[in-house]
């Protein structure tokens, strides 16, 4: 049961209609956050809306002495990107997904995409992690057939990815979840780079991931605290990190 959350999406730029919405929340390996952050910077997307709720945990992101909303939507080149800079409890994330998908329906969006990591014990031995995808329906498959990832074989997913897919099905929004193998407990810019590569055919942007790889050490160091927050949330998620996907 998802509690009713009073969430506000306040658009701060003239209305823009984009066909694709990309979600990046703090989760396993921070893959969603790192990849969306890189896309926003590389494609120079503009912050188009701020998202907040009184029911979110009392955490404020501070940038150069200025308070900023914990979650923002960026847009440009036909793409909305929602990036979360704090790790919300699962219930809040679920409320946020519901609210944002409703907002996306009003915007007449065509495809919702969520990037997330799958904890892989063997990640250390893999230079290129595997990327998997889950379609919400046949229409999503048609739209995202070119995402260079393997369809996830039989099994179960849990947590906010499962909720995202189910809510998209319920609303009839084509959606695809892109899942990348990553380190279970550390930020993984390498996995985020693979996620971006796999999504290029859908987002229609030529994003160079090399700067992300080159700044990998800085990213890992800076994101330590967010990773700690995210792990606390992941530990409370049914199925936990290691079994986010059960094959």
């Amino acid at each position: 049961m998802v509690p009713f959350l009073s969430i506000e999406i306040v658009e701060i730029t003239p209305e823009e209609r984009c066909e694709t919405l990309l979600f990046g929340f703090p989760g396993v390996g921070l893959v969603g956050v790192i990849s969306t952050d890189h896309i926003i910077k590389a494609a120079s997307l503009k912050r188009t809306a701020k998202v907040d709720s009184r029911e979110f945990p009392p955490i404020v992101r501070v940038v150069n002495g200025m308070a900023a909303e914990p979650i923002s939507i960026y847009s440009g080149s036909g793409l909305y990107v929602m990036k979360g800079d704090v790790a919300l409890p699962l219930q809040s994330t679920m409320g946020l997904i519901t609210f944002t998908l409703d907002w996306f329906v009003k915007k007449k969006g065509k495809l919702a995409v969520m990037i997330e990591g799958i904890a892989s014990e063997n990640r250390l031995n893999k230079e290129k992690p595997e990327v998997f995808k889950i379609y919400s329906d046949e229409e999503a498959k048609e739209l995202a057939i070119n995402v260079s990832a393997k369809p996830l074989p039989e099994g179960f997913v849990s947590g906010h990815i499962a909720y995202f897919i189910r809510e998209a099905i319920y609303r009839g929004i084509p959606a695809v979840a892109v899942l990348v193998e990553c380190f279970p407990a550390y930020p993984d810019p390498g996995a985020a780079a693979e996620a971006i590569e796999s999504l290029k055919p859908v987002i229609n942007l030529d994003i160079d991931v090399n700067p992300l790889i080159e700044r990998s050490e800085v990213v890992r160091h800076k994101m330590r605290e967010l990773m700690r927050q995210a792990m606390q949330v992941v530990q409370q998620t049914p199925g936990k990190a290691e079994s986010l996907y059960i094959g």
Partner: peptide, 9 residues
């Protein structure tokens, strides 16, 4: 016991 530390750099 396997312990992994993230020590970038």
């Amino acid at each position: 016991i396997k312990i992994c530390f993230d020590v970038p750099g």
